[in-house]
Design a protein around this nucleic acid. Structure first.
Length: 281
DNA sequence: ATGTCAATACAATATTGA
């Protein structure tokens, strides 16, 4: 089974490129982020014509997550347990919960529990959005730890735009982020590390040790290769053991109307479609 | 020169977000 993640930066603008890539790259399941639309606005037809079913969560023109799959999806979950909310100007001391944004959708394909996740940007080190980002990451780690406790040995994949560059090599120069050095601050890296403490590992890095997944549209970042590695597939041990290959699809940053992010994919063996499982006599 | 892009409200530009 080939699974992938891609921040598409508007599916209405990008559906042609996305479906073409799904078919050409022979992808079974794609987690998308920043679809930037409601369910009524989502271009379902090109996906269905290519043989993909889509589940999505979109509230307005911001954020939005989806999963497209040509294998059956079950147990669709909108948002994760404990996911924090956010609203500009919301007073956290008001006693009222801030509304949830469209940043998480889960589905099960074969025996793999998959999530499409769009972690808050943070905006600035002192911005209220940064605290939201840190709380979002910690709550995600807590929910993942709960799932792994309830499903020992289970295959869990967190796929998405985490908006954190976990190592220095994942961002060549902090000035790539205008103004403030978000994405690389100790607080953000510590919050990201709680996912590793929950038992999840980056399953792409061992096979693709270098390279970026995002280049800002501004300031010729792509031609200069001044990008960041912020899109990941994080797996439980039960998933990581089944990873046979991984790729970062840098070519997708080229050509007409690219997203500012590129797809990241991994191949899994040992799923229900066992014709790719090594035979042992 | 932030060497940009997308959605919306609105009706040619401004705002928001990334």
């Amino acid at each position: 089974m080939r699974i992938a993640t891609w921040n598409v930066n508007s599916i209405r603008t990008r559906h042609g490129r996305v479906v073409d890539w799904l078919v050409n790259a022979d992808v079974d399941v794609l987690a998308m982020q920043e679809i930037k639309c409601t369910p009524a606005q989502f271009p379902l037809e090109p996906f269905e014509a290519a043989g993909y079913e889509v589940v999505l969560h979109g509230l307005n023109q911001w954020n939005g997550v989806a999963i497209a799959s040509r294998l059956p999806m079950t147990d669709i979950e909108i948002g994760f347990s404990g996911q924090p909310g956010f609203a500009k100007g919301h007073d956290p001391d008001s006693g009222q919960d801030a509304p949830l944004e469209a940043r998480a959708i889960g589905a099960t394909v074969d025996d793999v529990r998959l999530w499409s996740l769009y972690v808050p940007n943070g905006r600035g080190l002192d911005d209220p959005h940064m605290d939201y980002k840190l709380r979002f990451l910690r709550a995600l780690a807590d929910d993942s730890a709960r799932w792994l406790g309830a499903n020992p040995g289970g295959a869990l994949a967190l796929m998405g735009d985490f908006n954190v560059a976990p190592t220095d090599a994942d961002m060549g120069d902090p000035s790539f982020v205008p103004g403030l050095s978000t994405h690389i601050s100790p607080a953000e890296r510590e919050a990201f590390a709680t996912l590793e403490q929950a038992g999840l590992t980056d399953v792409v890095r061992p096979l693709v040790p270098t390279g970026y997944t995002f280049w800002d549209y501004k300031q010729l970042r792509f031609p200069r290769d001044e990008g960041m590695r912020i899109d990941f597939i994080l797996g439980s041990p039960g998933l990581a053991d089944r990873v046979a290959d991984a790729r970062i699809e840098r070519e997708q940053r080229k050509g007409d109307a690219p997203s500012d992010h590129v797809p990241v994919l991994v191949d899994l063996v040992g799923d229900d479609d066992d014709d790719d499982r090594p035979m042992i006599f």
